[in-house]
Amino acid sequence: MTAIRCINVCKTYHQGRDEIKALDHVDLAIDEGAFVCVSAPSGGGKTTLLNAIGGLDMPDSGEVWIGDTRIDQLNKGELAELRLRHIGFVFQAYNLIPVLTARENVEFVMEVRGVPSVERQKKSREILQEVGLEDLEGRRPAEMSGGQQQRVAVARAIVTDPSLVLADEPTANLDSKTSEGLMDLFAKLNKDHGTTFVISTHDRRVMAHARRLVKMLDGCIVEDIRQKGT
């Protein structure tokens, strides 16, 4: 079963007179339960691709399918519903709501979904323990390091047990030990729950975890490597 399918997806940005092809005729199919790494140098189109898949940004042309829904034709409300119910996000630049504590940030999506508070607490405590932040659950983002914030974001992305996790450079701010731990956690979730992971990175150690490595350059897919499982 195919979880994600991009057909001939193009996205062009205009910067003054320049045209930047952030996605240039991208064709990509990702199976359910896959563990895919998208790697590219900075500016290669990773974030643009993940945003297109996550229903955050509309491609100029082409089709984006999640399961059997063509999402580039959904309206804003339907897209919001899709993101809320089915996708876990780790964004590259900005992830946490400053006025909420670590635990409240983790619970945010559950709360918007209407999960009862007892269940929210149980799940958020478990997941914070798993990312090693059980002692910091009462802290606000400003009181945590970049790495700790990143782990809170990851915790929020996976706590709802979504069918798809889109993580944009999730290890960018982490030391190697923590990022190893995180990748192990992703791999475990992928194996136990069949969660589909699409992770963008230019970190070689992260790439090493992926069973499939999609390399991009200037908005084009230049290599698509199936690796041995880890």
Partner: peptide
């Protein structure tokens, strides 16, 4: 702007 965008990105409704 950013946190409002974040909440919307995570699927919170504009009405909220």
């Amino acid at each position: 702007v950013r946190e409002i965008g974040l909440m919307l990105a995570l699927g919170m409704r504009p009405a909220s």
